[in-house]
């Protein structure tokens, strides 16, 4: 097994395992299997989502958080949308479909971590938005091997939106 220099010296077997992890994780979210999804997170997970304010190209856009959660807050956020009695935004449940692509893993800071960039495109439909909406963004994840299995330790999502076009975000990216 040789490292592939085009994907940041991640061994092929690691590359495949990371791909499998990202697809499984997206599928669990698509099917609202939140408990199983939460099981894929490390105990110290952090989760941030940003939108952007448009600035000149010389300066570059500024991204700023709309969600910035530690493990406890993320679990509370998920608990709200997971329980039909505790949410109107997700009851009835939105049509949600995640498309994860362009992922590029690299070795992370420590031997058991990978930094993974990916693109994400999320379709959302509701009775109040019958035509549907698409969120597009870039994710920077940190995956960590815990007890032999990959876990999500950090997710940083930068949405390619200056204005969010469907009320507010009740979706996990």
């Amino acid at each position: 097994m040789t490292d592939d220099p085009t994907n940041g010296h991640v061994a092929d077997r690691d590359y495949v395992e990371i791909q499998r992890f990202l697809y499984r994780e997206a599928s669990l979210l698509d099917h609202r299997q939140y408990d199983a999804w939460l099981g894929l997170l490390t105990d110290d997970v952090s989760y941030r989502v940003a939108q952007q304010i448009v600035r000149d190209a010389q300066t570059g856009n500024l991204d700023y958080a709309i969600v910035d959660e530690d493990a406890v807050a993320l679990r509370a956020r998920v608990a709200q949308i997971a329980n039909p009695k505790l949410t109107h935004a997700e009851n009835p449940a939105s049509f949600i479909r995640r498309f994860v692509s362009n992922f590029q893993p690299t070795r992370g800071g420590s031997q058991d971590e990978f930094a993974v960039e990916s693109n994400v495109l999320v379709y959302k439909g509701r009775t109040t938005i019958p035509e549907g909406r698409i969120y597009v963004g870039e994710r920077r994840d940190v995956l960590r091997r815990v007890g032999g299995a990959l876990r999500l330790a950090r997710r940083d999502v930068r949405l390619d939106h200056a204005i969010l076009f469907d009320g507010v975000v009740s979706t996990i990216f």
């Binding site: 939108q51 304010i53 700023y64 109040t128 938005i129 200056a162 204005i163 969010l164 469907d166 009320g167």
Partner: peptide
């Protein structure tokens, strides 16, 4: 900066 969204 301000969070910005539209709502119908």
């Amino acid at each position: 900066p301000p969070h910005r969204w539209r709502v119908k």
